[in-house]
Each structure stands twice: as C-alpha cells, then as structure tokens.
Simulated scan of single mutants.
Amino acid sequence: MQEILVLYYSHRGSVRALAEVIGRGIDSVPGAAARLRTVPRISAVCEAIEADIPERGAPYAEMSDLEECIGLALGSPTRFGNMSAPMKYFLDGTAGPWLSGALAGKPACVFTSSASQHGGQESTLLSMMTPLLHHGMLIVGLPFSEADLTGTTSGGSPYGATHVAGKDENTRLTEEEKRLAFAMGKRLAETALKLAPQ
C-alpha cells in the first residue's frame, strides 16, 4: 500500500473536513492510502503553542511524513488571500527535504476554506503551490471535466478543492464541495501511483 500525505492546518474545522473527504478519495483508489497529518498553532513569536499530541484530529506532521509518502495534498484556511501562519511556519522548516530533493517529482494538490465567497481562495491556493514548486513537486488541479466545478455556487476551483464556510464558520461541506474534494483526492492518488517508483 502506497501512502499519500494529506497535510493541513484547520482552526475551526472546515479545512479538516475537506482533508477527510480528500483522504476518502485517496483511499478509494486501489493500492493507495491517505496519511492525515496536521500542524500546530504558533504564537506571535513563531513558537509552537499546542500540546505535543493534538487533542483531536490527525497527529502532527514530521519531515519523515513528507519523505515517505508518494504524494501530498496540502490544505490551509485563507488568511487575507494567503496560507495561514502555522502552515507557512511548517513549510519554512522543510529545508532538509528541499536539499535532498525528497519531494522532487512527486505530485501535489492544494485546498482551502474561507469565511466569504470572495475571501481570496484562489490566491491562497497559489501561495501554497509556490513552495511545492520549489521542492520540484508536480501540481495536480481539478479539471473542468468535473461537472461540479461549473455548477457549484459555493466552493470549488480548478486550482484545488475549496469550501465557503460562511460568517459562522460552518464546517458542513456542500454536496458539490464534497464531490470535488473526493475527486481531487482520487485524481492525486491515481497520478501518484503512476509516478511512484516500481
């Protein structure tokens, strides 16, 4: 079984909900399994301020998770059109895998959630792609052959799966958002298995 890392930061649960559906999409592909991991919140001085083990959800990511998996789904809430500070802090610490080329040639996709429809989702997705391109990863998006991409009135983008949480930060994904997240996980897994060393 080949594992694909689903790495996310979620403050109120929306990104975690997307991560879980993406994981189910990965698990639907024979020979692939999702490995869910998260990153801790950080303080204003950029030090981890969470317990060593999360109270709920996925365990915290380690560099070995990046190196061992054959693909990566990366998720973060939208923060003023950019990824969240905890995810940026984690990615800034990936010089080791960058120097060794551990991620080069592996496929990756990105996903996000925002409180508002025009909250900067696509610029957030693009901001998460930049460090992945520096690692030499191959970006996998959502093609318009996914019918929900043209019919959704909530989340969804060719750049990656998204969710519009609303002002109450509702974590309930719409049916279109679920189908798009599942499709993205499945597409990432199929691509990763084709590219993985035999």
Rank of each mutant, 00 (worst) to 15 (best):
C69I: 03
L132C: 13
L193E: 08
V39W: 02
L173V: 13
I22G: 11
Y60G: 11
K167A: 15
S123G: 06
A95D: 11
M137C: 14
A85V: 00
A192Y: 01
T78V: 09
I139R: 02
L142S: 09
A19N: 00
L5G: 03
L18M: 06
C69W: 02
S28C: 09
A165T: 06
L142T: 05
V21P: 07
E169G: 14
A34S: 02
E175K: 07
I53A: 14
A104D: 15
E169A: 11
G31W: 05
P131S: 03
P158D: 05
E175A: 09
G101F: 04
Y9A: 06
F182H: 15
L132M: 12
G151N: 13
G71E: 04
R16F: 01
E3T: 07
T171W: 00
S154V: 14
A58P: 00
A17M: 09
A192K: 02
G75N: 10
A181F: 14
M63R: 10
R56D: 15
M128L: 07
T174M: 10
V45D: 15
G136K: 10
A183G: 07
G120R: 00
P143Q: 10
H135W: 13
Q198W: 07
K186I: 08
I53Y: 07
I42A: 06
T191A: 03
T171M: 07
G119E: 00
L18A: 07
L125E: 08
A58M: 00
T150L: 15
I42W: 02
Q117I: 05
K194N: 11
L138I: 08
L132Y: 06
